[in-house]
Design a protein around this nucleic acid. Structure first.
Lengths: 153, 153
DNA sequence: CGGAATTTGTTGCACCCGTAACGACCCAAA
DNA sequence: TTTGGGTCGTTACGGGTGCAACAAATTCCG
Protein backbone atom coordinates (compact mmCIF):
# COMPACT_ATOMS: atom_id res chain seq x y z
CA UNK A 1 0.00 0.00 0.00
CA UNK A 2 1.28 3.50 -0.86
CA UNK A 3 0.71 5.19 2.47
CA UNK A 4 3.81 5.95 4.53
CA UNK A 5 4.51 6.79 8.13
CA UNK A 6 4.26 10.45 7.18
CA UNK A 7 0.90 11.85 8.04
CA UNK A 8 0.59 14.90 5.85
CA UNK A 9 1.50 16.69 2.70
CA UNK A 10 3.30 13.94 0.86
CA UNK A 11 2.61 15.44 -2.54
CA UNK A 12 2.94 19.09 -1.64
CA UNK A 13 5.86 18.65 0.72
CA UNK A 14 9.17 20.40 0.46
CA UNK A 15 12.11 18.18 1.26
CA UNK A 16 14.11 20.37 3.56
CA UNK A 17 17.21 18.20 3.32
CA UNK A 18 17.30 18.80 -0.44
CA UNK A 19 16.51 22.49 -0.23
CA UNK A 20 19.52 24.55 -1.20
CA UNK A 21 19.32 27.40 1.33
CA UNK A 22 18.96 24.87 4.13
CA UNK A 23 21.84 22.77 2.86
CA UNK A 24 24.10 25.80 2.55
CA UNK A 25 23.37 26.88 6.06
CA UNK A 26 23.93 23.44 7.43
CA UNK A 27 27.25 23.05 5.65
CA UNK A 28 28.43 26.53 6.59
CA UNK A 29 27.49 25.81 10.19
CA UNK A 30 29.32 22.51 10.24
CA UNK A 31 32.43 23.82 8.54
CA UNK A 32 32.85 26.96 10.50
CA UNK A 33 31.86 25.56 13.85
CA UNK A 34 34.77 23.18 13.57
CA UNK A 35 37.10 25.94 12.54
CA UNK A 36 35.75 28.43 15.04
CA UNK A 37 36.63 26.05 17.84
CA UNK A 38 40.27 26.55 16.96
CA UNK A 39 40.48 30.32 17.31
CA UNK A 40 37.90 30.40 20.03
CA UNK A 41 39.61 27.83 22.25
CA UNK A 42 43.11 29.05 21.60
CA UNK A 43 42.55 32.79 21.83
CA UNK A 44 38.99 33.47 22.87
CA UNK A 45 38.25 35.13 19.53
CA UNK A 46 34.74 35.55 18.20
CA UNK A 47 34.12 35.09 14.50
CA UNK A 48 34.00 38.83 13.75
CA UNK A 49 37.23 39.26 15.68
CA UNK A 50 38.91 36.48 13.73
CA UNK A 51 37.75 38.02 10.47
CA UNK A 52 39.07 41.40 11.47
CA UNK A 53 42.40 39.89 12.41
CA UNK A 54 42.52 37.96 9.17
CA UNK A 55 41.64 40.98 7.07
CA UNK A 56 44.21 43.25 8.67
CA UNK A 57 46.76 40.45 8.50
CA UNK A 58 46.14 40.07 4.81
CA UNK A 59 45.86 43.69 3.77
CA UNK A 60 47.83 45.62 6.37
CA UNK A 61 46.51 49.05 7.27
CA UNK A 62 42.92 49.86 6.42
CA UNK A 63 39.81 51.63 7.69
CA UNK A 64 36.84 50.01 9.39
CA UNK A 65 34.65 50.45 6.32
CA UNK A 66 37.23 48.74 4.13
CA UNK A 67 37.43 45.86 6.59
CA UNK A 68 33.68 45.47 6.40
CA UNK A 69 33.74 45.47 2.62
CA UNK A 70 36.43 42.82 2.42
CA UNK A 71 35.14 40.54 5.15
CA UNK A 72 31.40 40.87 4.48
CA UNK A 73 30.62 42.22 7.93
CA UNK A 74 28.12 44.80 9.05
CA UNK A 75 29.75 48.00 10.24
CA UNK A 76 28.53 47.49 13.79
CA UNK A 77 30.21 44.11 13.87
CA UNK A 78 33.45 45.67 12.69
CA UNK A 79 33.15 48.46 15.20
CA UNK A 80 32.72 46.04 18.08
CA UNK A 81 35.48 43.75 16.90
CA UNK A 82 37.85 46.72 16.62
CA UNK A 83 37.04 47.74 20.19
CA UNK A 84 37.70 44.19 21.38
CA UNK A 85 41.03 43.74 19.60
CA UNK A 86 42.14 47.21 20.59
CA UNK A 87 41.50 46.39 24.24
CA UNK A 88 43.76 43.38 23.85
CA UNK A 89 46.41 45.55 22.27
CA UNK A 90 46.29 43.47 19.11
CA UNK A 91 45.58 46.45 16.90
CA UNK A 92 46.06 50.19 16.93
CA UNK A 93 43.96 52.97 15.46
CA UNK A 94 45.79 55.98 14.08
CA UNK A 95 43.81 59.04 13.02
CA UNK A 96 43.87 59.55 9.29
CA UNK A 97 45.51 62.79 8.23
CA UNK A 98 43.17 63.35 5.33
CA UNK A 99 39.80 62.32 6.74
CA UNK A 100 39.22 62.91 10.39
CA UNK A 101 36.17 60.66 10.45
CA UNK A 102 38.23 57.51 10.04
CA UNK A 103 41.03 55.74 11.84
CA UNK A 104 43.68 53.66 10.13
CA UNK A 105 43.68 50.23 11.70
CA UNK A 106 46.70 47.98 11.82
CA UNK A 107 47.81 44.95 13.79
CA UNK A 108 50.33 45.44 16.55
CA UNK A 109 53.30 43.10 16.85
CA UNK A 110 51.27 41.02 19.28
CA UNK A 111 48.33 40.91 16.89
CA UNK A 112 50.53 39.97 13.97
CA UNK A 113 52.05 37.19 16.04
CA UNK A 114 48.65 35.67 16.69
CA UNK A 115 47.77 36.05 13.03
CA UNK A 116 50.95 34.30 11.92
CA UNK A 117 50.21 31.51 14.35
CA UNK A 118 46.69 31.04 13.05
CA UNK A 119 47.40 31.14 9.32
CA UNK A 120 49.04 27.73 8.96
CA UNK A 121 46.36 26.22 11.17
CA UNK A 122 43.72 27.67 8.89
CA UNK A 123 45.48 26.41 5.79
CA UNK A 124 45.79 23.00 7.32
CA UNK A 125 42.15 22.92 8.31
CA UNK A 126 41.11 23.72 4.76
CA UNK A 127 43.50 21.18 3.36
CA UNK A 128 42.11 18.41 5.53
CA UNK A 129 38.58 19.46 4.74
CA UNK A 130 39.12 19.35 1.00
CA UNK A 131 41.41 16.38 1.21
CA UNK A 132 38.65 14.33 2.75
CA UNK A 133 36.58 14.34 -0.42
CA UNK A 134 37.22 12.86 -3.81
CA UNK A 135 39.37 15.09 -6.08
CA UNK A 136 36.67 15.08 -8.73
CA UNK A 137 34.06 16.19 -6.24
CA UNK A 138 36.45 18.76 -4.85
CA UNK A 139 36.99 20.40 -8.21
CA UNK A 140 33.27 20.27 -8.83
CA UNK A 141 32.47 21.90 -5.54
CA UNK A 142 34.92 24.73 -6.09
CA UNK A 143 33.71 25.37 -9.62
CA UNK A 144 30.10 25.37 -8.52
CA UNK A 145 30.75 27.73 -5.65
CA UNK A 146 32.67 30.04 -7.91
CA UNK A 147 29.70 30.15 -10.26
CA UNK A 148 27.26 30.95 -7.47
CA UNK A 149 29.57 33.61 -6.08
CA UNK A 150 29.72 35.29 -9.45
CA UNK A 151 25.95 35.46 -9.47
CA UNK A 152 25.24 36.43 -5.88
CA UNK A 153 28.12 38.54 -4.64
CA UNK B 1 59.51 46.74 -8.06
CA UNK B 2 57.85 43.83 -6.25
CA UNK B 3 56.27 45.76 -3.40
CA UNK B 4 52.51 46.19 -3.49
CA UNK B 5 50.04 48.47 -1.76
CA UNK B 6 49.76 45.88 0.97
CA UNK B 7 51.91 46.70 3.91
CA UNK B 8 52.37 43.38 5.65
CA UNK B 9 52.45 39.65 5.48
CA UNK B 10 52.43 39.18 1.74
CA UNK B 11 54.08 35.79 1.88
CA UNK B 12 52.45 34.47 5.02
CA UNK B 13 49.02 35.90 4.30
CA UNK B 14 45.83 33.92 4.15
CA UNK B 15 43.54 35.05 1.37
CA UNK B 16 40.23 35.23 3.16
CA UNK B 17 38.25 35.40 -0.07
CA UNK B 18 39.64 32.01 -1.09
CA UNK B 19 39.29 30.42 2.33
CA UNK B 20 36.58 27.78 2.29
CA UNK B 21 34.91 28.38 5.67
CA UNK B 22 34.65 32.08 4.88
CA UNK B 23 33.24 31.43 1.43
CA UNK B 24 30.67 29.01 2.75
CA UNK B 25 29.47 31.45 5.33
CA UNK B 26 29.27 34.25 2.84
CA UNK B 27 27.30 32.17 0.37
CA UNK B 28 24.97 30.80 3.03
CA UNK B 29 24.40 34.32 4.28
CA UNK B 30 23.63 35.65 0.83
CA UNK B 31 21.35 32.79 -0.15
CA UNK B 32 19.34 32.59 2.99
CA UNK B 33 19.09 36.29 3.59
CA UNK B 34 17.30 36.57 0.29
CA UNK B 35 15.04 33.67 1.11
CA UNK B 36 14.46 34.76 4.69
CA UNK B 37 13.06 38.03 3.42
CA UNK B 38 10.18 36.08 1.92
CA UNK B 39 8.91 34.33 5.03
CA UNK B 40 9.90 37.18 7.29
CA UNK B 41 8.10 39.87 5.33
CA UNK B 42 5.06 37.77 4.54
CA UNK B 43 4.52 36.13 7.91
CA UNK B 44 6.97 37.54 10.41
CA UNK B 45 8.65 34.17 10.77
CA UNK B 46 12.17 33.79 12.11
CA UNK B 47 14.47 31.21 10.57
CA UNK B 48 13.95 28.64 13.36
CA UNK B 49 10.21 29.14 13.06
CA UNK B 50 10.32 28.59 9.31
CA UNK B 51 12.36 25.45 9.79
CA UNK B 52 9.95 24.13 12.35
CA UNK B 53 7.03 24.82 10.04
CA UNK B 54 8.84 23.20 7.13
CA UNK B 55 9.77 20.13 9.15
CA UNK B 56 6.29 19.56 10.51
CA UNK B 57 4.86 20.23 7.07
CA UNK B 58 7.11 17.61 5.59
CA UNK B 59 6.90 14.92 8.24
CA UNK B 60 3.60 15.49 9.95
CA UNK B 61 3.48 14.76 13.67
CA UNK B 62 6.76 14.59 15.56
CA UNK B 63 8.44 15.51 18.82
CA UNK B 64 10.69 18.49 19.49
CA UNK B 65 13.81 16.34 19.58
CA UNK B 66 12.97 14.81 16.23
CA UNK B 67 12.44 18.26 14.76
CA UNK B 68 15.83 19.30 16.00
CA UNK B 69 17.46 16.24 14.50
CA UNK B 70 15.88 16.77 11.10
CA UNK B 71 16.35 20.51 10.87
CA UNK B 72 19.79 20.76 12.51
CA UNK B 73 18.62 23.05 15.28
CA UNK B 74 19.66 23.29 18.90
CA UNK B 75 16.94 22.11 21.24
CA UNK B 76 16.52 25.57 22.74
CA UNK B 77 15.87 26.97 19.31
CA UNK B 78 13.23 24.33 18.72
CA UNK B 79 11.67 24.95 22.09
CA UNK B 80 11.36 28.67 21.47
CA UNK B 81 10.08 28.21 17.94
CA UNK B 82 7.43 25.80 19.21
CA UNK B 83 6.30 28.35 21.78
CA UNK B 84 6.09 31.01 19.08
CA UNK B 85 4.10 28.94 16.58
CA UNK B 86 1.86 27.62 19.31
CA UNK B 87 1.00 31.15 20.35
CA UNK B 88 -0.02 31.86 16.78
CA UNK B 89 -2.16 28.73 16.77
CA UNK B 90 -0.14 27.32 13.88
CA UNK B 91 0.70 24.15 15.75
CA UNK B 92 -0.66 22.06 18.60
CA UNK B 93 1.10 19.94 21.18
CA UNK B 94 -0.61 16.76 22.24
CA UNK B 95 0.81 14.77 25.16
CA UNK B 96 2.29 11.48 24.06
CA UNK B 97 0.55 8.46 25.50
CA UNK B 98 3.73 6.45 25.85
CA UNK B 99 6.27 9.02 27.03
CA UNK B 100 5.00 11.78 29.23
CA UNK B 101 8.15 13.87 28.77
CA UNK B 102 7.31 14.67 25.17
CA UNK B 103 4.54 16.33 23.23
CA UNK B 104 3.53 15.36 19.74
CA UNK B 105 3.69 18.44 17.59
CA UNK B 106 1.57 18.95 14.49
CA UNK B 107 0.51 21.85 12.34
CA UNK B 108 -3.01 23.16 12.73
CA UNK B 109 -5.12 23.87 9.68
CA UNK B 110 -3.93 27.46 9.83
CA UNK B 111 -0.30 26.35 10.07
CA UNK B 112 -0.71 23.91 7.21
CA UNK B 113 -2.23 26.66 5.10
CA UNK B 114 0.80 28.88 5.59
CA UNK B 115 3.06 25.95 4.83
CA UNK B 116 1.26 25.16 1.59
CA UNK B 117 1.50 28.80 0.61
CA UNK B 118 5.23 28.90 1.25
CA UNK B 119 6.24 25.64 -0.44
CA UNK B 120 5.83 26.74 -4.08
CA UNK B 121 7.55 30.02 -3.26
CA UNK B 122 10.48 28.10 -1.83
CA UNK B 123 10.63 25.81 -4.83
CA UNK B 124 10.57 28.77 -7.14
CA UNK B 125 13.29 30.54 -5.21
CA UNK B 126 15.54 27.53 -5.51
CA UNK B 127 14.73 27.12 -9.17
CA UNK B 128 15.68 30.69 -9.95
CA UNK B 129 18.81 30.42 -7.89
CA UNK B 130 20.02 27.31 -9.65
CA UNK B 131 18.69 28.46 -12.98
CA UNK B 132 20.92 31.49 -12.85
CA UNK B 133 24.09 29.47 -13.17
CA UNK B 134 25.40 27.32 -15.98
CA UNK B 135 23.96 23.76 -15.99
CA UNK B 136 27.44 22.31 -15.86
CA UNK B 137 28.33 24.41 -12.83
CA UNK B 138 25.01 23.56 -11.26
CA UNK B 139 25.61 19.84 -11.48
CA UNK B 140 29.13 20.36 -10.18
CA UNK B 141 27.96 22.38 -7.23
CA UNK B 142 25.36 19.81 -6.23
CA UNK B 143 27.79 16.92 -6.57
CA UNK B 144 30.42 18.74 -4.55
CA UNK B 145 28.02 19.65 -1.81
CA UNK B 146 26.76 16.11 -1.65
CA UNK B 147 30.32 14.90 -1.20
CA UNK B 148 31.01 17.34 1.61
CA UNK B 149 27.74 16.49 3.30
CA UNK B 150 28.65 12.83 3.28
CA UNK B 151 31.87 13.69 5.04
CA UNK B 152 30.67 16.23 7.54
CA UNK B 153 27.12 15.37 8.48
C1' DC C 1 12.17 -3.83 42.89
C1' DG C 2 14.99 0.49 43.36
C1' DG C 3 18.69 3.70 42.84
C1' DA C 4 21.77 5.65 39.14
C1' DA C 5 22.26 7.29 34.74
C1' DT C 6 20.05 9.14 30.72
C1' DT C 7 16.73 11.62 27.95
C1' DT C 8 13.41 15.46 27.05
C1' DG C 9 12.24 19.99 27.06
C1' DT C 10 12.32 24.69 29.51
C1' DT C 11 14.47 28.66 31.42
C1' DG C 12 18.05 32.12 33.38
C1' DC C 13 22.01 34.16 31.91
C1' DA C 14 25.44 36.49 29.38
C1' DC C 15 26.50 37.57 25.00
C1' DC C 16 25.95 38.55 19.99
C1' DC C 17 23.26 40.75 16.39
C1' DG C 18 21.00 44.20 13.02
C1' DT C 19 18.23 48.43 12.96
C1' DA C 20 17.79 52.96 13.65
C1' DA C 21 19.34 57.13 15.32
C1' DC C 22 23.09 60.01 16.15
C1' DG C 23 27.37 63.28 16.12
C1' DA C 24 31.22 64.32 13.61
C1' DC C 25 33.00 65.17 9.38
C1' DC C 26 33.48 65.72 4.16
C1' DC C 27 32.28 67.80 -0.13
C1' DA C 28 30.00 70.22 -3.70
C1' DA C 29 26.90 73.74 -5.26
C1' DA C 30 25.33 78.23 -4.76
C1' DT D 1 31.19 80.91 3.16
C1' DT D 2 27.09 78.81 3.92
C1' DT D 3 24.15 75.08 3.32
C1' DG D 4 22.45 70.62 2.26
C1' DG D 5 23.31 65.87 1.20
C1' DG D 6 26.21 62.40 1.84
C1' DT D 7 29.81 59.10 4.56
C1' DC D 8 32.11 57.11 8.75
C1' DG D 9 31.84 54.99 12.94
C1' DT D 10 29.49 54.42 17.63
C1' DT D 11 25.76 53.24 20.58
C1' DA D 12 21.02 52.24 22.66
C1' DC D 13 17.69 48.98 21.98
C1' DG D 14 14.96 44.98 21.16
C1' DG D 15 15.51 40.48 20.11
C1' DG D 16 17.98 36.06 18.92
C1' DT D 17 21.57 32.50 20.66
C1' DG D 18 24.12 28.76 23.03
C1' DC D 19 25.48 27.13 27.52
C1' DA D 20 24.55 25.37 31.79
C1' DA D 21 21.40 24.09 35.16
C1' DC D 22 17.17 22.14 36.06
C1' DA D 23 12.72 19.15 36.88
C1' DA D 24 10.24 15.47 35.22
C1' DA D 25 10.06 11.16 33.14
C1' DT D 26 12.19 7.10 31.48
C1' DT D 27 15.54 3.43 31.08
C1' DC D 28 19.24 0.70 32.61
C1' DC D 29 21.00 -2.69 35.55
C1' DG D 30 22.28 -4.94 39.71
Amino acid sequence: MPSSRHETMDAAALELENFLPYRFNRLADAVSRDFARIYKDRHGLTRPEWRLLATLGQYGTMTATAVGRHSAMHKTKVSRAVTALERRLWLTRRPDGEDRRVDNLALTKAGARVYRELVPIARNFEKELLGSIDPKDRAALLAGMRALERKLL
